[in-house]
């Protein structure tokens, strides 16, 4: 993909993107997973995850980004994430109330603590990430007529 000079931006941009895009994705995942112990959370992390794919699209062109996450995959993942969040909320009925935090809370400030909150963050992160990416895809779907 880096060898195709016709699509995307210059070699410099492509090289820098190749180096940074993974780091951006990792940073997004970090923000999602640490949402319950540090500032951030599902929404902020999801936006960063989406930005890493948008970054890919800006540097390499639309086709490369779509080959990683297609429109149908984005749409399905978005619905699955929403249903995941709803089922986490529904699990609370096992303890007697909608949205009840039924999992053990653990010690504060540990990664594995706060019960269902990290799970909710993951669901929100996926939903926001693919949702924003899908919005961006929809915006670039228009092509110049040939």
């Amino acid at each position: 993909m880096i060898d195709n000079p016709k699509s995307g931006m210059t070699l410099i941009v492509k090289t820098i993107t190749r180096l940074t895009v993974g780091l951006i994705l990792l940073f997004g995942i970090y923000i999602i997973l640490h949402g319950h112990v540090s500032p951030g959370g599902g929404f902020a992390g999801g936006v960063i995850v989406a930005l890493s794919f948008v970054h890919l699209m800006l540097a390499f062109g639309k086709d490369v980004a779509i080959s990683k996450v297609s429109k149908n995959l984005a749409s399905s993942l978005e619905s699955i994430a929403a249903l995941m969040f709803l089922s986490i909320a529904l699990l609370g009925f096992l303890g007697g109330s909608f949205f009840l935090n039924i999992l053990p809370k653990g010690t504060p400030f540990n990664l594995f603590s706060a019960g269902i909150i990290p799970l909710c963050n993951i669901a929100i992160g996926i939903k926001v990430g693919v949702g924003l990416f899908a919005i961006f895809l929809t915006l670039v779907i228009v092509e110049k007529s040939k």
Binding site: S75, S76, S79, I80, A82, L83, L86, A89, L90, F98
Partner: peptide
């Protein structure tokens, strides 16, 4: 819950 679940089930 019901309309929210229905909405995303339908889109899935």
């Amino acid at each position: 819950i019901i309309p929210l679940a229905a909405a995303f089930l339908i889109s899935l």
